[in-house]
Design a protein around this nucleic acid. Structure first.
Length: 423
DNA sequence: TCTGGGGTCCTAGGACCC
DNA sequence: TCTGGGGTCCTAGGACCC
């Protein structure tokens, strides 16, 4: 059996943990640069504030209903996320951290008489008690079905108490008939349209044998796997997601950029953060992608996308090499597209492998001194603070995101720990 | 004039997830 | 005026190998 544990309105719940007076009140969280709504409490959702809406478009509603609005505080959310996973590991050693706010658990090899409903409530209660974060738990024989079960738990809190178990065929069929096709895990916007055109409106319609061949042509093996999962046959195992297969740093700019020097500074910084993250997970990359984006929201939302891909002769996690390569790529991109105004840029590193399994090139090699230099740099930065030592290319300009409504780093910063006075 | 069969690797792009 | 960021997997097609 699998469980899917999903935190309710996670970011909003994190803010409420340290500001409990917000419980029961509408709360909304903004994306980077305070651009869009990316999380909201049930109360804010009930006000009709759509997910992903640009903040300025819903500003009036927010003000009118006194919605408590926050900038994204990833230091806080990331830390609380890890604490949730820590608790979950007390219930099973097999935990897949699927996203910042949800995890799959597998119970293979555990007591076969386990009462999953009861066990689910124990998880829920412990997370609620220790972290004040409400979660829902769905349990079923496959990952896709546990997603369905979770949705039911979330939708009917009174009847389920936030936990729902699909453990019989009867319950499975009922659940599938209830689940709209667009709510099935793996069916996105485009597939939904095709499905509905073919009169597939629920998850139950989807598993009808008459559609099998069609699903194969439309979705390939992905669709067939999903079908099996919904039929109760487990084909998706728990994934090990602790080491990433690609790392991306991309940002929108507060103001459109065209100036090469400014872009070079941004790309250098993104590239060096990629290198840091690579070293943190003990990986090297062999391929580097630099991208520039123009965005035009007014003119039919047309945006243009430029990118360069370079595969190195050896794999690396040296900041020097990655920044140097990225800047050369930027040079080329910028020269080819003179005068454009860029809204976003990014650096992505892929083709990652463990730093111990490095493949060497016969003739071209990285200066071995990089390795010790990076070690020294990481050690100093670890001691005296984040990114105090950096490359000259990154400059001294600070690129502060707009974060006008940021809460404190309650759990990760000594200066910002909550103070409680006893009278 | 007629010309086999079985592979691998890489890349770009699409679709999806949160 | 103001519109996020970071991932995964699969497929088709090209180029190559013997």
């Amino acid at each position: 059996m699998y469980a899917l544990v999903d935190c309710n309105n996670f970011y909003a719940s994190c803010e409420r943990l340290f500001q409990p007076h917000l419980v029961g009140k509408p709360v909304a969280i903004l994306s980077n640069n305070d651009g869009c709504i990316i999380s909201r409490s049930d109360e804010a959702r009930a006000l009709g504030i759509p997910m992903g809406a640009p903040e300025f478009q819903v500003r009036d509603v927010l003000r009118q209903h006194q919605v408590h609005v926050f900038s994204s505080n990833y230091a806080l959310y990331g830390d609380l996320s890890q604490r949730v996973f820590e608790i979950l590991r007390q219930f099973s050693p097999n935990v897949e951290e699927y996203s910042i706010d949800e995890a799959f658990l597998n119970f293979d090899g555990m007591d076969s008489n386990l009462d999953f409903n009861d066990y689910g409530h124990q998880m829920r209660n412990r997370i609620r008690k220790w972290l004040s974060i409400p979660v829902c738990v769905g349990v079923a024989p496959t990952k896709a079905l546990s997603k369905v079960a979770n949705k039911i738990a979330r939708k009917f809190p009174d009847k389920t108490g936030g936990v729902y178990v699909i453990d019989t065929d009867e319950k499975r069929i009922k659940a599938l008939k209830w689940t709209k096709i667009e709510d099935v895990w793996g069916i996105g916007y485009r597939m939904k349209k095709k499905m509905v055109a073919r009169n597939i409106k629920t998850a139950f319609d989807f598993i009808d044998p008459m559609h099998t061949a069609w699903i194969k042509t439309q979705m390939g093996v992905v669709g067939l796997r999903l079908k099996k999962e919904l039929e109760g046959e487990s084909v998706l195992a728990l994934d090990d997601v602790t080491t990433k297969k690609s790392i991306a740093i991309t940002r929108s700019f507060p103001k459109k950029l065209t100036d090469y020097d400014a872009l070079r500074e941004r790309i250098s910084t993104f590239a060096s953060v990629c290198a840091e993250k690579l070293r943190l997970q003990h990986s090297c990359c062999q391929t580097i992608i630099v991208m520039l984006n123009t965005v035009n929201y007014d003119n039919g939302r047309k945006s243009r996308y430029f990118q360069q891909v370079v595969t190195l002769p050896f794999s690396t996690n040296s900041t020097l090499t990655i920044v140097d390569t990225a800047v050369k790529m930027l040079q080329k991109l910028h020269a080819e597209n003179e005068g454009l105004l860029y809204q976003k840029a990014g650096v992505i590193v892929t083709q990652l492998r463990n730093e111990n399994e490095k493949q060497f090139d016969l003739f071209v090699d990285e200066n071995p001194k990089h390795l010790s230099l990076m070690k020294a740099m990481d050690a100093i930065n670890g001691k005296i603070g984040h990114r105090k030592v950096k490359l000259g290319a990154q400059g001294n300009q600070t690129w502060n995101m707009r974060q006008n409504k940021l809460s404190l780093k309650y759990t990760t910063h000594f200066d910002q720990i909550l103070t409680i006075r006893c009278q």
